[in-house]
């Protein structure tokens, strides 16, 4: 599904160059539930953005669904994003002047589905996420958890093969975070690949595979079986020295 080979990415900051990703090799298969962890500034968001074709990379190769993603036109990239990927952001990124239903329906507008039909489908997705009563509400009338669920509904509506979520629980309290993770797990159960970036170990431990980034490289990949071990090790790390 996803195959990264020796991905490099650097940002130009005036005269000096900031080398953020220094050779990432990663394989993610259809239906996996992956979390990306690492300290702040380690390049997690950068990596996720490359996966979502929101950003390009300097070196290496990225194959998505067997197709090489490189140097494509904005138009092609937009089309591919619309078909393949659903995004969930930490700050929700809903369009403020559209209500919940219209926000959810928007990806279908770009797929050329007519208004009536896409609003109907949007209602179905909102209903599935328990948000039917809020369909007519504007984003500023909803709580963080509700907004994130709207964003998830929007990510799902175009039936993507991959959901990319950058700190989807970053702005939510613990119990709401767990609700959101439960929703993401259900999505994953339906066969969709889910990749999230998170700082929180309890969140990460709900996924099947943890990719730890350190200094622009993959430090370690922890699989489901080793999670218990990981949890223990992590609590040690947290202890003050």
């Amino acid at each position: 599904m996803i195959k990264l080979t020796d991905i490099h990415k650097s940002y130009e900051m005036g005269s000096n160059k900031l080398h953020v990703l220094k050779g990432i090799d990663l394989d993610i298969h259809q239906g996996e539930f992956v979390s990306i962890m690492g300290s702040s500034g380690s390049g997690k968001s950068t990596l996720l953005n490359i996966l979502g074709i929101l950003d390009n990379y300097d070196q290496g190769s990225y194959h998505l669904g067997g197709k090489l993603i490189s140097n494509m036109t904005e138009k092609k990239a937009a089309q591919l994003r619309n078909e393949m990927v659903g995004f969930v952001f930490q700050s929700f990124n809903l369009i403020s002047f559209k209500n919940a239903m219209e926000n959810v329906a928007l990806p279908l507008y770009y797929k050329g589905v007519n208004r009536k039909k896409r609003n109907m489908i949007a209602m179905e997705y909102l209903d599935r996420l328990g948000l039917k009563p809020w369909a007519e509400h504007m984003p500023n009338e909803m709580s963080g958890g509700q907004k994130q669920r709207v964003a998830i509904a929007r990510a799902l509506i175009s039936k993507p093969q991959i959901i990319l979520a950058d700190e989807p629980t970053g702005a939510l309290d613990t119990s709401t975070s767990y609700e959101v993770m439960e929703i993401l797990r259900e999505i994953n159960d339906a066969g969709i690949t889910v990749i999230i970036v998170t700082h929180e170990h309890d969140i990460a431990s709900m996924t099947q595979k943890i990719v730890r980034l350190k200094d622009g490289r993959i430090d370690e990949v922890i699989l489901n079986g080793e999670l218990a071990d990981f949890r223990e090790r992590y609590s040690k790390e947290l202890q003050p020295v």
Partner: peptide, 16 residues
């Protein structure tokens, strides 16, 4: 700008 970013992330082409 932000709205445009959102639209593009969910599949809007530059021309649209």
């Amino acid at each position: 700008t932000k709205e445009i970013g959102i639209r593009k992330a969910i599949g809007a082409s530059p021309s649209s």
